[in-house]
Design a protein around this nucleic acid. Structure first.
Lengths: 174, 174
DNA sequence: TATTGTTATACTCTATAACTATA
DNA sequence: TATAGTTATAGAGTATAACAATA
């Protein structure tokens, strides 16, 4: 997309400040640019909302997963989070040291993960915090807009995962 | 950071495979989760599309910015990209060593950035590659859907940037 | 033989502090 | 005194390779 549509609308917006308004160049017409900006801003908001809980999105997600699948095998949970098994070891270890979860040997080489009472308690607080966060960041979205947003994001995820050769085909799936 | 997983309507989807379909927990109802998944998938697609050009999104963006604002001051360009000035030094240095841009001293302490002929040539190829990439990842989106997506993403960015105390107010702005 | 968990390692990104030389 | 660029450093996040114990 080199030049965007008309010469201006999206093109060359006063070398503005990044954090606040838009950046420069004619980047604002790219889906990846808008997606990244929104994701970064939302995660920063998440971090503020979870500052006192001392949980980042990945840690919160693991607690949610273990709560949904008590005893889930460590490698399975790591794969669900997209975290390499080598990196997942210290990741789990940190939460275990905080007393939020325990590793339960299942068969000599496999660990099952379970939340402790403390972990369940923190998760309960975290769910409330994330609900507030979610409401805040989507407060300008109507129900139908949010539904459409999710539909679109899933389609972008699927389309981006497709191989180059597949890109030509597959009209409107999603 | 919510990582992977898509899953089901919302709650507890078979502990599925990560890369392909959805993961677990009841994460798929969170905007941050869907946003992150889409952004990661799209950037991975970008990386594949730009493999032969050896440019990442940030590097491509800098070339676009310098092309739009020839001679732009280094600190200004870094701010537009949201890159810390300390990290921007080696960032620019690397592109300069590749012969894509030059630093032009403006007044003893200020550097202006300009693309070289080689940089402009690479940018031209990069614009073509990003056009193809953009078309691929948004191939299932109608024109109106893409327009609405951008509107929604900008609103999420703005809402996430708002302070906690502001979150209560501001109904539907966008 | 393949898998689970682990260690070691390295590379990228990001962030802070402090310094210089200039304005 | 404030600013632009720089260096050094440290912390996350992510990646590969290799290994032990086990299935």
């Amino acid at each position: 997309m080199s030049r965007r549509k008309t010469g201006r609308p999206a093109l060359v917006p006063e070398p503005g400040e990044l954090g606040t308004a838009g950046a420069g160049g004619d980047l604002s017409g790219y889906t990846g640019y808008q997606l990244r900006r929104a994701q970064l801003a939302l995660f920063a908001h998440f971090a503020r909302a979870f500052a006192d809980l001392d949980l980042n999105p990945a840690q919160f997600s693991l607690l949610v997963i273990i709560d949904a699948y008590p005893g889930i095998v460590q490698s399975r949970a790591g794969a669900m989070l997209g975290i390499h098994k080598a990196n997942f070891v210290p990741f789990v270890g940190k939460l275990q040291r905080r007393g939020l979860l325990v590793r339960i040997p299942l068969d000599g080489r496999t660990n099952g993960l379970r939340l402790t009472a403390k972990g369940r308690g923190l998760l309960r607080r975290a769910r409330r915090a994330v609900d507030t966060h979610e409401a805040a960041v989507t407060r300008t979205l109507s129900v139908s807009e949010k539904r459409l947003l999710f539909s679109i994001l899933r389609r972008i995820t699927a389309a981006s995962a497709a191989t180059r050769s597949d890109e030509a085909s597959a009209p409107h799936s999603a």
